[in-house]
Design a protein around this nucleic acid. Structure first.
Lengths: 210, 210
DNA sequence: GGACACATGTAACGGGTTACATGATTTC
DNA sequence: GAAATCATGTAACCCGTTACATGTGTCC
């Protein structure tokens, strides 16, 4: 049987807080990790079993009527495994952005199709920030389930919120630009791109200098 | 055999520009798409064959010594398939960020381990921008292979460069923050998080109003 | 008592990665 | 002529998704 994956540790991390049923775990992963570690909920059912066979978690089975459910909790071996994982090398953040692939081959697309491809960024930005507003209010109004988690949540929130801001800013400015393309000359379009390139190089040189 | 995936279209998109060998395709995907559609190069060898069985590409086989290689080109059916894809719904951008998962369960980590988890964002930011500077210079100095692609490249560049800026900004500010944690009170840490939450809510309200 | 959300799974499939193998070309 | 790099793949495995199935509680 294969070694533990990041998905395994995402579940094990929750078990290190307290025991949970599979359904509760699925909820937590969905509420809290979906924007930076998205997994379908049915995955959890297999993964918890995997954790048990690896000896890092144990499950206590009980019944409601004819339907069983399992409460999982972490084992001492599980806590050690979590600590080892924390010491391991981290993968770089990974981005998959189909809309950008379409933009890349935009020579085969209509302006309307480009606008739609770009729009997918805005949709995600809205989702992230809608969820973010709820979390932020919970903390600020003292309604959070784990108020002492605020410092860690703040770090994650900071990243995601600004990720969303970047998605939105890009989508809006790109859609504005693409909207001009049907009536804009090739030189004009190219000049706009060159401005982007120049700004980046200036930023890079400023950073190099210190 | 399954339908075409985004990876299929990423290859088909290149074939719509001109015919390529598998190796050249692998290079192009690596150079141009790796930051928003990352795939291992060995995937290309299987996927090109898939494109042929689907009738959207054809391969012309030739030999150098005992070693074969294939030049793939797009078929009329392939161009139609590409056009259909462009009309289809776009997936949202997808982020996988193991470092954030570690931060999330940071209660089980040392400050040093948190710093390392955060660092993975900076590593990626550097990679994106190092590649970006090269591309930007090529365009600005007229050394680009497809100068008329500049407007489209500009859109993609704009997104990736600012994505990298966001990764770097977050990594630096978070590392600064975490560095203070060993000597900082719980209240102080929480207050910093609350500032993040408040700023976000203000931004959100400002946007709602106008 | 019908509809619907909540809750708990299983089966099958496949895209993607890892690891490996090996031929051709260039460099020193 | 050895080593390194460029080039072309194959085999095996598995994580993850899709699609499906079904029990339980609640609302009207």
């Amino acid at each position: 049987m294969a070694a533990l994956t990041t998905t395994s540790y995402a579940i094990l991390g929750w078990l290190s807080v307290r025991p949970w049923t599979t359904y509760e775990l699925a909820q937590q992963l969905r509420r809290n990790l979906r924007f930076f570690w998205p997994r379908v909920e049915s995955r959890i059912y297999q993964e918890t079993k995997h954790l048990v066979t690896e000896g890092v978690a144990k499950g206590e089975r009980s019944y409601v009527g004819r339907r069983g459910h399992t409460i999982y909790s972490i084992t001492p071996k599980g806590r050690r495994a979590l600590a080892v994982w924390m010491r391991q090398q981290n993968d770089r953040p990974l981005l998959e952005f189909e809309g950008l692939v379409k933009v890349f081959f935009g020579a085969s697309a209509t302006p309307e199709q480009l606008l739609a491809a770009i729009q997918s960024a805005k949709v995600l930005a809205d989702e992230i920030q809608a969820a973010g507003v709820i979390v932020a209010r919970e903390y600020l109004e003292g309604r959070s389930a784990w108020p002492d988690r605020a410092p860690l949540s703040g770090l994650i929130f900071d990243f995601l919120w600004n990720h969303a801001e970047n998605l939105r800013r890009w989508a809006e400015s790109s859609q504005q630009e693409v909207a001009t393309w049907p009536t804009s000359s090739a030189d004009k379009k190219t000049e706009r791109a060159f401005q982007v390139f120049r700004t980046a190089i200036e930023q890079d040189e400023k950073r190099s200098r210190g």
